[in-house]
């Protein structure tokens, strides 16, 4: 049992697994994002619900959903600004994240919100945002982010970013 003279032995370790992960039938979303700066959602062939993130089957109807191109403008449903976070993101603080409902979508997508003036009032519910894309894209969610509508021109004129389609 532990007493006053107890001495702990600690071992340093890490767990690393590498992947080459298939996105399966969602692959088209990432390919179109990477190659053509398109944001694809899906629309149920039966109930008409649009899914974003996309799923090729409607989880409500158990019927197929078709690919559709979404608008690149949307509205913030809910947001926060993060000031303390995980080891993987701590160098990025403060950063904004929000659930954004793209115009015409039924569901909201989590994305980063970039702003020259990152304060709660700038990213509040109902704010209009537009997608900005990295010039160097890898086919990942980090290939794009949203900015307040009035900052769009500023962001797409930065050397590493560009506007969508």
């Amino acid at each position: 049992m532990s007493g006053e003279n107890f001495q702990a032995h600690e071992i340093r370790d890490k767990i690393i697994i590498q992947y080459k992960y298939t996105m399966g039938s969602q692959s088209k979303f990432f390919i179109e994002l990477k190659n053509n700066k398109k944001l694809l959602g899906t629309k149920c062939t039966k109930c008409g619900k649009t899914w974003m993130p996309p799923r090729i089957n409607c989880s409500e109807c158990y019927e197929p959903a078709d690919w559709i191109e979404m608008k690149q403008t949307g509205t913030i449903e809910v947001s926060t600004i993060v000031w303390y976070t995980t080891s993987a993101f701590i160098k990025a603080i403060p950063y904004g994240v929000a659930y954004v409902k793209l115009d015409g979508a039924d569901t909201a997508l989590l994305q980063g919100i970039f702003s020259e003036n990152l304060v709660p009032s700038k990213v509040k519910k109902g704010s209009f945002v537009k997608a900005v894309f990295l010039k160097e894209r890898e086919g990942k969610m980090t290939d794009f982010f949203f900015v307040p509508e009035d900052e769009y021109e500023t962001w797409i004129n930065k050397p590493e970013y560009e506007g969508g389609v």
């Binding site: 976070t85 993987a88 993101f89 989590l110 980090t142």
Partner: peptide, 25 residues
């Protein structure tokens, strides 16, 4: 921060983890 990272792997790894999602946010 590493505890939070171990938890953050419970977020959707494709769509949400890369956005810096964690328990509090």
């Amino acid at each position: 921060p590493e505890v939070l990272n171990a938890i953050a792997y419970s977020a959707d790894m494709t769509y949400e983890y890369p956005m810096g999602m964690m328990a509090a946010s």
